[in-house]
Design a protein around this nucleic acid. Structure first.
Lengths: 326, 326
DNA sequence: TTGAAAGCGTTACCAT
DNA sequence: ATGGTAACGCTTTCAA
């Protein structure tokens, strides 16, 4: 019976035929739950989002990653389980491991919020438990740990250099009080480019309260006000932590009568769908989010099927997409 | 033991104490899989997306719905399983029911693509199997079927009326060859308003090949070309099937040197995050997508816990948000 | 090649 | 109030 369902060649053709008929007649459906219990494997991978913001799927980047994961999981007949931390977002190791221990998932893709060290204990716990996982946008080491990243630092470096080449000198960076590992890397790239250009003194960072466009507007607002208060000149360029922030920032600039890119150049990050449709079309650093989701899922599934990939650190290239905003 | 874990009051305090200690010492974790097998209930709800486009999570509306579902599921300690049709998107009843029959989910939220009748057989199959589900944006009847909708027709009607009140007469609608139940309703609202204004002859519909902004640009392009070919005047207003399309359409209008809203008013649908940040800020019909996801999940979970809601048809109100594009 | 039986980790039931 | 046992539906192993 089991041998028939799984197409194993140890059954005589006519026996197989009989069994198949019975299956059809009884409208039999194998229970994946029972299979899971017996085989100690659920054929499901989890998406563990360590972000207290319940609206995280609405972030275009997360959505793209999710789409890539889902596509790949389906292709390999794996299920995808969405898992969020209950409540406040501060996880104990126990909570994190729960879906593994309870047999719900065989592996997980982990998306972090917060600074890169804030969830170190969580990753340590995963490692110590010996479970299989892939972390997005974050270096990680461990027996069964993969990491899938975009070239965030390179991208931010290239974007800053482009602005410098265009003669911009007062280049500001928009980040957020809600930290996020990729942003640290982007900041690093920005800082390095400024330092190498001898403009360390011009480094200027303004935080958004969150990762929405409304937050981006707040950050831009704060930036301009700070300049006014201190009698500093306005920045002549802004590198935004991501496109969503950039959109809000451009809105504020327009409201203030500042021309983009004439007065202030703006470059975003991610190249989300709407980047080319805002006015002016947004120059940005493309991050291959969909591909990252795919890659992470592929690595985990290959590992689960006995084909672990020796390369644990996967960095997908970013690309500067020059449009008209900067 | 089971009684202790589930806090049943049939155990003596000191026995409970002893068991709890053992649990801690052995680092015991209940297996949800075994629980599922034993109780014939997985404590998971599925999101069945009958859309062949693998990038569906990147659609802002879907993402918001997903966020609402995820939030609610987590709150009630339910898992959320993402389920896509394998491959082409044309589902057999068998494939649709698979996650139910295999015990992976106790209920599902179903998002349809295609015309409202194209998946009728799928919904019939769900009904006939007696499984619990909620359909988004689509009327449904059945023993265990809920439907959660936005007031699509009302919204489109109100938007069209607003344009008429502003003196617009040549109002076009942007839909898509990739149909979608909600769009049929929006079209109905548009048609009804035009008919009631005696402008049935002016009804003009241009399709996008998909639901991206690029598609919206194609639809707008096609619309203008059709007018030119037939020697018709350009439309003085456009009601887009959703905001994503509207963004692409506005882009084309600007490229052609047409002023929004001076020459052509544009109204979108959904009120996604970026609607207020495009230029000019997009007038649109707000659809409470997050709330719809929440509601659907709540209805299912309440039903599963023995508290079925008598009202099966839930229509959440839409609201016309007037900004500057129309 | 086939059929029977054990066991995966729970919970529900039934003796104690 | 407690401990033992069967059963959930499958796969694997072992004997026939």
């Amino acid at each position: 019976m089991s041998n028939v369902v799984h197409n194993r060649p140890v059954v005589k053709p006519d026996t197989r035929q009989r069994v198949l008929e019975a299956i059809a007649k009884l409208d039999y459906h194998p229970s994946r739950v029972a299979q899971g219990l017996r085989q100690q494997a659920s054929r499901a991978i989890g998406f563990l989002v360590l972000d207290p913001n319940p609206r995280w799927p609405a972030d275009p980047l997360h959505a793209e990653v999710l789409a890539g994961m889902s596509e790949t999981a389906t292709k390999h007949d794996y299920s995808l389980l969405l898992d969020r931390p209950p409540g406040n977002g501060h996880l104990t190791a126990r909570e994190l491991l729960q879906p593994f221990r309870s047999g719900q998932i065989d592996a997980a893709i982990v998306a972090l919020a917060g600074t890169s060290d804030s969830h170190q204990h969580a990753l340590d716990a995963l490692n110590q438990a010996g479970v299989l996982f892939a972390v997005l946008e974050r270096e990680i080491e461990g027996e069964c740990a993969y990491s899938v990243m975009g070239a965030n630092e390179d991208g931010a470096y290239a974007a800053t250099q482009k602005l410098l080449r265009d003669g911009r000198r007062q280049i500001a960076f928009l980040d957020s009080t809600q930290m996020w590992p990729a942003i640290e890397l982007r900041l690093n790239g920005y800082r390095r480019a400024m330092r190498e250009a001898g403009l360390e003194a011009n480094i200027l960072i303004s935080p958004s309260p969150d990762w929405t466009s409304a937050g981006g507007a707040v950050a831009m607002h704060g930036l301009l006000e700070r300049c006014e208060r201190k009698g500093l000149p306005y920045p002549d360029a802004v590198l935004a932590g991501n496109d969503v922030l950039a959109v809000g920032a451009m809105h504020v600039l327009r409201e203030r009568g500042l021309h983009v890119p004439g007065d202030v150049a703006v470059i975003g990050f991610d190249d989300f769908e709407f980047a080319r449709y805002v006015d002016p079309p947004l120059t940005t650093v493309r991050l291959p989010a969909y591909e990252m989701g795919k890659r992470a899922a592929e690595l985990l599934i290959a590992h689960l099927e006995g084909r672990p990939t020796s390369q644990r650190r996967h960095i997908l290239p970013t690309e500067l997409i020059v449009r008209q905003s900067g």
